[in-house]
Design a protein around this nucleic acid. Sequence first.
DNA 1: GACAAGATGATAATGAGTTATCAATATAAA
DNA 2: TTTATATTGATAACTCATTATCATCTTGTC
Lengths: 123, 123
Amino acid sequence: MERSTRQRQAIREVMTELNRPLSPTEVLEAARYKVPGLGIATVYRTLKGLVEEGSAVTVELPGEPPRYELAGKKHHHHFHCNQCGKVFELEGCPGDFSFMVPQGFKTEKHEIVLYGRCTDCLN
Amino acid sequence: MERSTRQRQAIREVMTELNRPLSPTEVLEAARYKVPGLGIATVYRTLKGLVEEGSAVTVELPGEPPRYELAGKKHHHHFHCNQCGKVFELEGCPGDFSFMVPQGFKTEKHEIVLYGRCTDCLN
DNA sequence: GACAAGATGATAATGAGTTATCAATATAAA
DNA sequence: TTTATATTGATAACTCATTATCATCTTGTC
C-alpha cells in the first residue's frame, strides 16, 4: 500500500460512502462506477492491504464469506436483510450476557446479528 | 435414511452424548471410537439425511463451516471457545433487540454468539 | 442361507472464494 | 521527460469443504 492509485481511491471512497460492510464483489461493483476497468484481484489485494494497515476490519457473519468495513467505529452489531442480502450497521447493544454463560466459562467477546427486511425491501 | 446401520447409530449417539454443535470432522472423530473404519463421506451423507428428515439442524457461526446439532431444542444461542474451538449451547436470551433496529426495518430472527474460554480450557 | 437393494469407504471431482503469476501499465521521484 | 518499480487486470492455480462415483459390503426380507 505505498502508492496512491485511482483504484485504491475508488475502493476507499466506496467503503466510506456506502458505510456498511461490503463483500469484495459489492466493492467491485460499486467501485467500477468510478474506475470501469477495475479487476477483482485488485479489490482483494486492496482490502487485504487496508486490513493489514488497520484501516479496515473483517466482518464475519454466519454462513457468509467475509465482508469489510472501515475501522475505527465504536462497538456495534449488524443487520442482515434476508431479501437483498445487504448488511447494515446497528447502534446500541444489550451489553451484558453474563447471565447466559455457564459456571466456569469466561466471555471475552460477543456478536449479535439481526435478520429481517431493510427499509428498501419493505418500501 | 432407510436402513439402520452401525454407522448411523454411532453418529446419532455421538450427537446425543456430546450435546453440542459438532462439525462433520468432530462427528467423524467421535464416532470412530464406536465404528473404527467410519468414513467422512458417510458422516456427510448421514448429517445431510438427519437434517432432511428434521432430526438435526445446521448451526452456522461467523467464519466457520457449518456444525450440526439435534433438532427440537428450545430457543438458544452458542458459546465458541477461542482455545479449543468447541461450541457449546447457552440458555437464556435477552430477547428484545427492537431498540437496535433502525426505523423502517423489520426484524425476523436474531443470533448471538459469545466467545471466550470454556471451563476445560481455563481449568 | 440367498438375494435385491441400500449403505459404505476411498478417492476423484466439484464449487466458491481467494491468491499467485506475469506481461502491460501507471505512479512519483529525479 | 525519463526511469525504476509498484500496481493492475486477466486468468490460472490453489484451498477447503462438500459431493459424486463405484466397487464392495450390509441389511433385512423371503
